Simulated assay, not measured.
Amino acid sequence: CITPKWVTWNVTGRDLDLKLCIYGERGTSCHGFVVNSLHVKGNVGAPVKVPVAAQPLRALRLAVSGTAPSGTLLGPVVIAI
């Protein structure tokens, strides 16, 4: 198990309407739960840093949903442990 500190989403675009969601799991018998989520609306030109609850997690799952016009850049995600 690890205890992540934050997740940095590298999103660049205009007229965005995205939900960036972080799910965590503690074990094989435990279903995923939302650790933190963020709604990004409008223009974004810098990395978005989202804190993660200080609790040990076995797995971390990231999800992006919503709408983004062509030309939107979703770069690598940085997870700080």
Score class of each variant (00 low, 15 high):
residue 69 P to S: 09
residue 77 V to G: 07
residue 3 T to M: 13
residue 13 G to F: 12
residue 10 N to S: 09
residue 9 W to T: 02
residue 5 K to L: 07
residue 45 G to P: 07
residue 19 K to P: 04
residue 38 L to S: 04
residue 22 I to F: 08
residue 70 S to I: 07
residue 24 G to M: 01
residue 33 F to G: 04
residue 67 T to E: 11
residue 49 K to I: 08
residue 72 T to M: 05
residue 42 G to A: 02
residue 17 D to S: 11
residue 61 R to K: 05
residue 12 T to H: 15
residue 65 S to W: 04
residue 72 T to S: 08
residue 12 T to N: 13
residue 8 T to Y: 02
residue 18 L to W: 05
residue 21 C to D: 03
residue 68 A to F: 11
residue 57 L to A: 07
residue 40 V to M: 10
residue 9 W to F: 02
residue 8 T to W: 08
residue 48 V to P: 06
residue 67 T to V: 10
residue 60 L to Q: 00
residue 30 C to R: 11
residue 17 D to Y: 14
residue 43 N to P: 02
residue 62 L to T: 06
residue 61 R to Y: 07
residue 28 T to K: 09
residue 26 R to Y: 03
residue 34 V to C: 08
residue 50 V to M: 00
residue 2 I to Y: 14
residue 77 V to D: 05
residue 30 C to G: 09
residue 26 R to D: 03
residue 8 T to P: 04
residue 22 I to A: 04
residue 66 G to W: 01
residue 52 V to K: 01
residue 53 A to F: 11
residue 44 V to N: 14
residue 37 S to H: 13
residue 42 G to S: 03
residue 48 V to F: 01
residue 32 G to F: 14
residue 34 V to Q: 00
residue 4 P to W: 00
residue 3 T to Y: 08
residue 65 S to D: 12
residue 50 V to G: 05
residue 2 I to F: 06
residue 36 N to W: 09
residue 24 G to W: 00
residue 34 V to A: 05
residue 25 E to Q: 12
residue 15 D to N: 15
residue 37 S to E: 05
residue 6 W to G: 04
residue 2 I to V: 15
residue 61 R to N: 09
residue 57 L to Y: 04
residue 59 A to L: 15
residue 52 V to C: 09
residue 23 Y to N: 14
residue 77 V to R: 02
residue 17 D to W: 14
residue 50 V to I: 12
residue 54 A to N: 13
residue 53 A to P: 02
residue 37 S to N: 01
residue 68 A to I: 05
residue 26 R to Q: 09
residue 35 V to R: 00
residue 50 V to H: 03
residue 42 G to Y: 10
residue 43 N to A: 01
residue 36 N to R: 09
residue 70 S to R: 15
residue 80 A to H: 09
residue 23 Y to H: 12
residue 51 P to M: 13
residue 41 K to P: 00
residue 60 L to I: 14
residue 31 H to D: 11
residue 70 S to Y: 14
residue 50 V to L: 12
residue 18 L to Y: 08
residue 31 H to Y: 08
residue 79 I to W: 04
residue 7 V to P: 01
residue 19 K to Q: 15
residue 74 L to C: 11
residue 79 I to D: 07
residue 3 T to H: 05
residue 16 L to N: 07
residue 74 L to S: 04
residue 19 K to A: 15
residue 19 K to Y: 10
residue 76 P to D: 12
residue 66 G to F: 06
residue 57 L to P: 06
residue 64 V to S: 12
residue 29 S to K: 11
residue 40 V to R: 05
residue 76 P to H: 11
residue 17 D to A: 13
residue 29 S to H: 11
residue 55 Q to T: 10
residue 6 W to H: 12
residue 34 V to L: 02
residue 42 G to L: 02
residue 80 A to F: 07
residue 9 W to G: 00
residue 67 T to P: 02
residue 65 S to N: 06
residue 43 N to K: 11
residue 32 G to E: 12
residue 78 V to T: 15
residue 11 V to I: 15
residue 70 S to A: 13
residue 23 Y to E: 12
residue 68 A to Q: 03
residue 61 R to I: 09
residue 64 V to T: 11
residue 13 G to A: 08
residue 13 G to P: 01
residue 62 L to P: 13
residue 79 I to Y: 05
residue 37 S to G: 05
residue 73 L to V: 10
residue 13 G to N: 04
residue 57 L to N: 08
residue 43 N to D: 09
residue 41 K to N: 07
residue 50 V to N: 00
residue 69 P to H: 02
residue 79 I to G: 10
residue 59 A to V: 11
residue 71 G to I: 13
residue 35 V to K: 00
residue 64 V to H: 13
residue 51 P to L: 10
